[in-house]
Structures are given as C-alpha cells and as structure tokens.
C-alpha cells in the first residue's frame, strides 16, 4: 500500500467514526425528547464532519455526488477508488 492509499484510508476512517456518531444521535433524536446537550453534541459533530469532508475532498475529490461536493479536474469522483475497491 502506498502513502496516498494510507492517507485515503485514514481520512475515510476518521469520517466513518464521526458520521457513525451522527447516525446514532439522529436515530436517538427521532424518538426521544430533544435534550439541549444532545443537540449541542450533534451540531459539534456535524461541524467536525464538515471539516473532515473538506479535508478528504481537498486530497481526493468529491465525497458526495450531484454538487454536494465541489467538482475538480482531474475527476476524483471517477478516478479514485470506490468503497468495494479499497
């Protein structure tokens, strides 16, 4: 595995940790009374997720399709590995 692969995996892993916490909190907030502390944690993690997403996109191109990530040239969306290729 070369250095870039290692970096890609690390950035994805950092994102996976934060996104997972957000999925879990989202489900919790769906059925439970909105606790201000949980909302605060959710928003803090959401900001952290945005930062990690931008960090990934700077290195490897779009994380999301349809303009939810900026496009660049050359096209990382097409060229960089899909999850099942990692």
């Amino acid at each position: 595995m070369n250095e870039r692969d290692t970096l890609l995996r690390r950035l994805i892993f950092d994102l996976q940790k934060v996104s997972f916490a957000l999925v879990e909190l989202q489900l919790y907030l769906d059925t439970n009374e909105a606790d201000p502390q949980v909302i605060h944690d959710f928003n803090q993690l959401s900001e952290l997720q945005n930062n990690l997403k931008r960090r990934y996109e700077t290195e490897f191109g779009p994380l999301l399709q349809y303009g939810y990530s900026p496009a660049e040239y050359p096209q990382g969306w097409v060229e960089n590995p899909w999850p099942w290729e990692l």
Binding site: R9, I12, F13, L15, Q16, S19, P62, L64, Y66, P83
Partner: peptide, 9 residues
Amino acid sequence: IYEKKLQYP
C-alpha cells in the same frame, strides 16, 4: 445522495 464511503470499514 450517495456518499463515496462505507458506513463501517
């Protein structure tokens, strides 16, 4: 919207 990552490694 598709996100180009798995939920879990």
